[in-house]
Amino acid sequence: MQPLLSVSHISLAYDTPEGRQEIVTDFSMALEKGHIGCLLGASGCGKTTILRAIAGFEPLQAGEIRLGTALLSSSGFLVEPEHRNVGMMFQDYALFPHLTVEKNIAFGLRRRDRREQEHRVRQLLELVGLETVAKRYPHELSGGQQQRVALARALAPEPDLLLLDEPFSNLDIDTRERLAFEVRDILKETGHTALLVTHNQAEAFAIADRIGVMRHGAIVQWDTPYGLHNHPANEFVADFVRREALMAQRAQAYLRGEGS
């Protein structure tokens, strides 16, 4: 079956004052329609840069990115972000502070007529359970509510692919876990394809169908959560998964007041 998103042999680099710095070299991955994928790795492994390349914010040095059969990016070629039909949820949510919740959600719907816009906004408010705060401004909302607005806004124009950049990192641990499951339910319910980037294993395991453990700009293992846990491809993956689980356990014990 043809994957929805295919990233083949891409290389990414930044121009810094000291010269060109390679971030990702010869990276490939694919994601099937309706699946939720995840790039899991420590900060600096290049996962966010890959996400930004899929969104159209980073030019490719080599390789190509396709959505279905359409070419989005290759070396020297770039479809502008606004023409990709890719949605994104940002780490800081990036809600427009001068617009109300409903205006934020309607931002990407300006090509539809007014009745259709209103209908779609109502539909999404209902989906994320925010009907009561439609007229409020982002700064009047809690972190969890802001996050749901960000999700609703990204889904409103019905993107082919949703990107999530560390979407839960600004929330406290309890909200984080609850929301991760909630977001998974919503995405599954609406049948969206999504790619998540995170350094948090618990988040990855809560949401994703497929997880790629990353190191130095490359995927070490691309597998289901079950596969990663039970059949780690090598020492690194085993270590990473185990340590993260251990840390999460310790953190929760600490929060419950059991540890020191």
Binding site: E82, D92, F107, R110, R153
Partner: peptide, 12 residues
Amino acid sequence: SLEQASRLLGES
């Protein structure tokens, strides 16, 4: 990120 969000929501 506000600018990026706007672009991904289809705005020039």
